[in-house]
Every structure is written in C-alpha cells, then in structure tokens.
Amino acid sequence: MPDRTDRASFVVLLVLLAVPWSVQTFSRGGGTTFVFAWGLFNTAPPNATFVWDFFFLYTQGLPDYIYAWPISVVCYVLALASGFVGLVFGREDPRVTGGLLVVAGVAQLSLARGFSVQPYRTAWPLGTLAFVVVAWWLYWPAARERFRAVWS
C-alpha cells in the first residue's frame, strides 16, 4: 500500500482550488455567486471578495451557516498539506487526507443548504461532490487497505 502521494494525485488536490465549491443562483436577477477556497466571485455586478476580507472586514451580522466555509477551507488546506508531505517525504496516511476532504465536503453541503433556505436563491454544492469523488477515487483504496491491515 502506497504511503506516497504521486504527482498526479497532488495535482488533482490542487485543481480543487479552481473548482467552485458552491454556486448560488438568484431567481430575481441577482446573477450568480461562485464560492471558492480563496473567496467569492459575483457576476452581477462582476466582483471578487477574498475569503480573508469576507471574514475580517465584512463580519457584521453573518449567519451561522457561513462559518462552514472557513471550516472547509481549513480542512482542505490540511488535506493539501498531508498530500504534500506524502509527495515530498513519502509519509502520508490516506485515511487522514481522504477524511479531511470528506469533512470539507460535508461543510460545503452545510453551506449550500444554508444558502438554499434563503428566498429566491438556490445553492449547488459542487465542492461536496468534488471532495467526495476525489477522496473516494484517490484515497479510499489505500485507506481500505490500511483498515484491513489494522483489523486483520
């Protein structure tokens, strides 16, 4: 069972930075908002808000479900660090990396659900799908072997 993340797997982890983690659409001419690890991009009017600005400048009156976003970012950054350690040093526990991706996905699902209960807004949790697929595809086979080794 490999303890090393290969370059292709690490690139897949990096690609999650470019995937919108959540997409909110507005039925009353409000455009679309894309939530990424780095921030938000709104289409109407076109503008970007970085995650640190959102939480350190615009913190007044944020609903609780918004805090799922930085939780997912932290979990993703830790998964990325775990994959990097596996790539560079050959020491990675796929249960940790995959588990962090799944937790990030669950947090994104919570964020999308919170956005979806608002009037005239629909949220699509693309990050949840992306994180779970990457965890299953890249890390589940090695994690399953680790579980088998522990329980045998």
Rank of each mutant, 00 (worst) to 15 (best):
V35D: 01
V19H: 04
A18E: 07
A112D: 02
A68I: 00
R7Q: 04
F10I: 03
F26W: 06
A142I: 00
W136D: 02
Q60P: 01
C75P: 00
A81N: 09
N42L: 10
Y76E: 04
V132Q: 01
A48I: 13
A8C: 09
W151S: 11
V51H: 10
L78S: 10
R144M: 08
L57M: 09
P119E: 08
G83N: 08
V19A: 12
V103E: 01
R28E: 14
S110N: 03
I66M: 14
F56M: 14
P20D: 06
A149S: 12
Y65C: 08
W136Y: 11
N47I: 03
V133M: 12
F55Y: 15
T32V: 15
W151N: 07
R28K: 11
P94I: 03
T32N: 02
V150W: 10
L111W: 03
P63I: 10
W124V: 06
L17E: 13
T97V: 12
L138I: 03
A8K: 14
V117M: 13
T122A: 12
N47G: 11
V73E: 00
I71Y: 00
G30I: 06
T43C: 02
L62I: 10
F115M: 14
G114E: 06
L87Q: 04
V134W: 01
G114M: 07
L100A: 04
V19Y: 07
G61E: 08
F36D: 02
F55K: 10
A130V: 01
Q118R: 14
V133K: 04
V51E: 10
